[in-house]
């Protein structure tokens, strides 16, 4: 599992000081990170920066980005995402979101910014399809310690090998803060927004749902239902990847982003 990292820039949006990364040239990829937070050294970020401008904020309450009492849900975060897109004057944006970030990408897209061109959803959370109240859509990772979450997130590193006593204080603080915010927005309703199902028809931009076939958190059925719930989406399975496909198969995720945005450009 990867360590979180500091991001070089800061901007105030929605009244919140947000740290972010903004490098590379070309078509914009707005990358919304997973629950483990942003890191510019992630392979997927490095790969995309070669051909695209990659903008990656630390979401409110993650990294050192400010939190506020009005940010209680992923839906609340989506307004910060929209404000960021406008503040940086981003257009023709490909929004790439991983896990929690994929959920946020859909929440943003339902608010229908004309600046968003397409979505790539890397193992997104945020919807619940089960109708039986005694059936849980995802295993309850909050009944395990965060050090045990790697088993649900990564196929390549199911054992969390991070050595927290040895890292700089700043990195450990970021990790702990990221987990706190992940619990705040994910606790209840558990990793989904019941209202999203009633709004998802508004996310009309073309979307690509990626699903790692080793995902221990969300099933293949879930990913298929997710793609079906979106107005214009297809599903691509990434072999050998877990829930964090961006971590297990970064080249596959980067290639999918490039192919999807290229295809749509040429279309």
């Amino acid at each position: 599992m990867y360590y979180p990292a500091a991001l070089p820039k800061q901007i105030t949006v929605s009244g919140l000081q947000i740290e972010y990364f903004d490098e590379g040239q070309g078509q914009v990829v707005l990358y919304l990170h997973s629950s483990e937070g942003p890191n510019p050294d992630l392979e997927v970020v490095k790969a995309l920066t070669k051909t695209n401008r990659v903008v990656m904020p630390a979401l409110p309450g993650f990294g050192i980005s400010e939190a506020a009492s009005f940010i209680r849900t992923v839906d609340d975060m989506s307004y910060v995402g929209l404000d960021l897109i406008e503040a940086l004057d981003l257009t023709d944006v490909t929004v790439l979101g991983s896990s929690l970030g994929g959920w946020l990408a859909v929440e943003v897209a339902t608010k229908a910014s004309p600046r968003i061109a397409r979505l790539v959803l890397d193992n997104p959370l945020g919807l619940r399809f089960a109708t039986d109240p005694m059936v849980r859509e995802f295993p309850d990772i909050y009944q395990d310690l965060p050090s045990q979450w790697s088993a649900f997130f990564s196929a390549s590193e199911p054992m969390d090998g991070r050595d927290w006593p040895s890292v700089e204080r700043d990195i450990a603080l970021r990790a702990a803060r990221n987990r706190e915010m992940f619990v705040k927005v994910g606790w209840s309703p558990y990793l989904h927004n019941p209202k999203l199902a009633g709004r998802i028809h508004r996310a009309t931009v073309p979307a690509l749902v990626l699903w790692g076939d080793q995902d221990k958190l969300a099933s293949h059925d879930y990913a298929q239902s997710y793609a079906a719930a979106l107005p214009d989406a297809s599903l691509e399975v990434i072999a050998g990847a877990g829930h964090f496909a961006f971590l297990d198969k970064p080249e596959a995720v980067a290639s999918a982003v490039l192919a999807f945005s290229g295809n749509k450009q040429n279309a």
Partner: peptide, 23 residues
């Protein structure tokens, strides 16, 4: 369960950091 003693988010993140970094 260890997580039932200190559920994620239960203690302030600064206190959690202290625990993470203490062998």
């Amino acid at each position: 369960r260890p997580a039932h003693v200190t559920p994620p988010g239960y203690a302030h993140y600064q206190a959690i950091t202290q625990m993470m970094q203490t062998p």
